[in-house]
Design a protein around this nucleic acid. Structure first.
Length: 694
DNA sequence: AGCACGCCGACT
DNA sequence: GTCGGCGTGCTC
């Protein structure tokens, strides 16, 4: 009890980055508070959720009268020191404020709750606990293959390094995760496990599998979900369950990496190469990298699983000149059901005249192959990463194109909707009857999207075959994704046409032919990570084929390409990811690119491109000397790959260093200058540390 | 970032 | 006379 004493409390609040407020503010309170306690405190006319960072007794009556008292202390267990460290590290590394990171890590609804609402939540939570059933038995054990058993044994041998579980699609990685986490949960009745997946909505199969397995053994509600799709109330409940130690398994997306889990004992990052682990808005953190930090900080095992690891992870799993690798690699090269990997065929588009192509986009053999599969009751999947009917409309007599007036992109023709749509801003316009420039009525199309591919196939094969399109447009309505998936699973569909949506998560057991219609577009992209993404995408698409023993003999993947000799395709043909990754690593090392160097991007948005670039150049100017002494390379300011979105001009500047620490120091020193540099017309700027796309 | 105050134009 | 436009300035 306070006995009239007063304590000086340092509180972390979500102070806006561009305000000139310090990150940590001082308040008074009549009692001592522990670091990590959640409090509400006044800021201006508002009252905000904050977290106690430090607490000391005020000596005598020396406390300034201007220091306001804390409004109330939330009746919750405090956030543990390792969690505070994780928040501090994240804020420092990604150049954000402590408060911003701390608040994004907490459920948004927690910010608004008053004392009464909080009490109600806790009562509801306590009631839920009472109704919980005790533990079931070990009945649903699945026998591990020898390869899985070997991987499991290695994961249990006490090596403290993060493990890269390098397993082919269909090698049964999930079963290994499950066995490892069951062992950990069984050994310690309070242990908690964090499992991260790229997008939870795309992997309902994984979710139900986890729930069925874990809840049967460790009780109802021992698994909680954590992702942005939950309702605010659900998110509070999940967070409370994790924070109070009730949830044994947290299954979530990237935001779950910041979940409070006081008895965390294992972190699994499934599909660790997936770009959605890198947050693209607000604090641009990499959940995979933070998972590795967190595992190290809390002496907790980290498992990174992938069939196509990121080049960074691949690099970390390699030993350099005899030294032990930072990560250890555990290989699972075989498919669990010992079916063969699908045969990859490269179809040389150069030997076909465009007119001789079916619908001008498919070589005739593919159509034959689709028909042959359908006759045997098997399905085909056509993968084309472009939705809509045609990506561009053109005038045949002048040089008009369906450019979006707000963006540096073309409006896409959507035939069913009879509209032009920009995929970058919200602009939707009617299809012009004649060219807006010259009035010519002969308007043509360039390129093909999934809508057109569906039409071509349905039109010419429609009498015999059932074609279904699966993309963001066909699944816009709630529940329609599930409905369409059900159609595929029940065999109501012969041909599935889809964007990269279809390559994620779902098992289509009857598919025996996968066709990548136009993979070349990503082959020579400016972004040095484009090949890596293409390989992983095609590998995942290939993984959709032949997941069923009955049809596996014929399972094939056909790639239509004008560059069949390309090293990427050749490695894919042999299912040889190591060859591809090593070649990428060699190229990147030679060019001093990541993972050999470390990068950050300074991005600026403004009304004009000149202003955005002028801001970046000014920013570079004030750090010229610092860059020299720190060994930092500042590249010239350039327009972003998508230069203009919704009438906003975007520019960026690359910052590179061979030393991560030097880059960190440089960025930290840069921040105050950037804040001072308020130039008229610059709308926003942001730093992206370890950017994924350049 | 909010949310104030503040000093000028058109409304019942 | 008041409602409200958004310029600038502060928040422990």
């Amino acid at each position: 009890m306070g006995h009239g004493k007063t304590y000086l409390i340092s509180v972390v609040l979500p102070t806006p980055a561009h305000s000139h407020l310090p990150q940590i503010l001082s308040y008074r309170h009549s009692e001592s508070l522990i670091k990590g306690a959640l409090v509400r405190a006044p800021l201006g006319k508002r009252e905000l959720l904050g977290m106690v960072w430090a607490c000391e007794p005020a000596i005598g009556d020396t406390l300034d009268d201007a220091i306001k008292p804390i409004t109330w202390v939330l009746p919750l267990p405090v956030l543990a020191q390792p969690w505070c460290d994780l928040v501090e590290f994240t804020a420092k590394y990604y150049q954000r404020t402590l408060g911003e990171i701390a608040m994004t890590a907490l459920p948004p609804q927690l910010r608004e709750l008053d004392a009464l609402q909080m009490t109600r939540k806790l009562t509801k939570f306590a009631k839920k606990l009472k109704t919980q059933d005790a533990v079931g038995d070990d009945s649903i054990r699945v026998a591990l293959s020898s390869e899985q058993q070997l991987a499991f044994n290695q994961l249990s041998d006490g090596d403290v390094r993060p493990a890269l579980l390098f397993g082919a699609t269909g090698s049964g990685k999930t079963e290994v995760y499950l066995c490892r986490l069951e062992a950990i949960l069984k050994a310690d009745a309070q242990a908690q496990v964090l499992v991260m997946v790229p997008e939870i909505n795309l992997t309902p199969q994984l979710e139900s599998r986890f729930k069925a397995r874990i809840e049967a053994r460790f009780g109802l509600d021992s698994v909680v979900l954590m992702h942005s799709g939950l309702t605010p109330a659900q998110r509070v409940q999940s967070w409370l369950a994790a924070h109070m130690g009730q949830a044994r398994v947290v299954l979530g997306t990237r935001l779950a990496v910041l979940a409070s889990m006081p008895r965390l004992r294992l972190i699994v990052v499934d599909e660790e190469h997936d770009p959605s682990y890198k947050s693209q808005d607000g604090a641009r953190y990499s959940a995979r990298d933070l998972a590795v930090y967190r595992g190290n900080r809390e002496s907790v095992q980290v498992i990174l699983g992938s069939a196509t690891p990121s080049i960074e992870t691949w690099h970390n799993a390699q030993s350099n000149d005899g030294k032990l690798a930072r990560y250890r690699r555990i290989d699972m090269p075989s498919r669990i059901d010992s079916t063969a990997m699908p045969e990859v065929r490269l179809i040389d588009l150069r030997v076909h005249k465009k007119k001789s192509l079916f619908g001008e986009c498919l070589v005739p053999e593919i159509v034959d192959a689709i028909q042959a599969r359908a006759a045997r009751g098997e399905q085909s999947l056509l993968f084309l990463n472009r939705r809509g009917y045609a990506p561009v409309l053109t005038c045949s007599s002048c040089d008009w194109k369906s450019a979006c007036p707000n963006c540096s992109a073309y409006q896409v023709f959507h035939k069913q909707e009879r509209r032009l749509r920009c995929h970058h801003c919200a602009l939707v316009t009617p299809v012009p009857r004649a060219c807006p420039e010259c009035g010519d009525v002969d308007i043509g199309m360039q390129g093909r999207g999934t809508e057109q591919l569906e039409e071509v196939l349905a039109g010419q094969l429609g009498k015999h075959l059932r074609v279904l399109r699966l993309d963001a447009d066909s699944t816009k309505l709630k529940g329609s994704l599930e409905a369409q998936m059900a159609l595929v699973h029940s065999g109501e569909v012969d041909v599935l046409v889809g964007t990269q949506m279809v390559t994620k998560g779902h098992d289509f057991r009857r598919i025996s032919l996968v066709v990548a219609v136009n993979p070349d577009s990503a082959l020579y992209a400016a972004d040095f990570r484009a090949p890596e993404r293409l390989f992983s995408l095609l590998m995942q698409a290939a993984g959709r084929a032949g997941r069923d023993v009955a049809v596996s003999v014929q399972a094939q993947v056909w790639l239509q390409t004008a560059h069949p000799e390309h090293a990427l395709y050749q490695a894919l043909k042999k299912h040889d990811y190591p060859a591809f990754a090593n070649q990428q690593l060699t190229e990147r090392t030679a060019a001093n690119m990541p993972p050999t160097s470390y990068q950050a991007l300074l991005r600026a948005e403004a009304k004009t491109q000149e202003l955005a670039q002028a801001f970046l150049e000014q920013a570079a100017l004030c750090m010229e000397n610092a860059a020299l002494t720190h060994g930092i390379t500042l590249y010239p300011a350039v327009p972003m790959p998508m230069q203009r979105i919704a009438k906003v001009e975007r520019a960026q500047m690359l910052v590179e260093s061979p030393s991560r620490a030097a880059l960190q120091q440089f960025l930290a020193a840069w921040q105050p200058y950037l804040r001072e540099l308020k130039m008229g017309g610059v709308l926003r700027w942001a730093l992206d540390v370890d950017p994924l796309t350049i």
